[in-house]
């Protein structure tokens, strides 16, 4: 463990908590893409299949458990409890166009052709594009509540910090995982224009308005 990965994991945890609190407190999931939340639930489910079979550390097990429970709780809140506030008119991204290519790619490019490893690889590829429906929704509505932009900033920062973690691990431990690194770069690049808007607008107290 290193500071980059620890802060990255905490930023990830913060993002998930911000989202759950936003939906629970405002009793609304307006401006949030349910499709992205479904993809995240799939990401954690397929990545943490070894939750009960492989023990890395108490921290690792607890965090995996929290991510899985929180992602399913968010999907439940959006599609069941606060279903009436779900913006299905704008949340129209076809997630099958993400699921199928990621699955095929995970069968072609992986470290080891076993169920666990292919599922882990699939989750890595899927996570890199899982935010697309959310970014698509924000671009369609042209704006985002500030709490939603804080959620996106924390979520985007987590993988950006993981990039630093991988640089550190390569230098300090001669350890690198090319599949995770390439996907992590793609994932972080997808946030770039959002990061720009967040830093130039939201941090100045303005609303996140996308140029029409």
């Amino acid at each position: 463990m290193n500071i980059f990965r620890l802060v990255g994991d905490l930023s990830h945890l913060l993002a998930i908590i911000i989202l759950l609190l936003k939906i629970w407190k405002t009793r609304s999931c307006a401006g949030i893409s349910g499709k992205s939340q479904i993809l995240f639930a799939v990401v954690y489910t397929t990545r943490y299949l070894d939750l009960l079979t492989t023990y890395v550390s108490a921290y690792n097990t607890v965090m995996k458990f929290v991510f899985i429970v929180a992602s399913y709780a968010t999907v439940y809140l959006m599609y069941v409890k606060f279903r009436a506030t779900y913006d299905h008119n704008h949340d129209t991204f076809r997630i099958e166009f993400l699921l199928v290519p990621c699955f095929i790619l995970s069968l072609l490019i992986n470290h080891e052709f076993t169920v666990l490893e292919v599922m882990w690889t699939f989750s890595i590829y899927l996570e890199s594009v899982a935010i697309l429906p959310q970014l698509f929704l924000v671009s369609k509505t042209g704006e985002a509540e500030s709490i939603t932009s804080h959620y996106l900033f924390a979520l985007g920062s987590y993988r950006a910090l993981y990039l630093l973690n991988w640089v550190y691990r390569y230098m300090a431990e001669d350890h690198y995982e090319l599949i995770a690194i390439v996907s992590g770069v793609v994932q972080t690049v997808l946030y770039c224009d959002f990061f720009y808007l967040y830093i130039t607008k939201v941090l100045k107290g303005k609303k996140l308005q996308l140029p029409a």
Partner: peptide
């Protein structure tokens, strides 16, 4: 370098 057999990252 050896491929990590278990993924120790979240």
């Amino acid at each position: 370098h050896p491929e990590p057999d278990t993924h120790d990252e979240l």
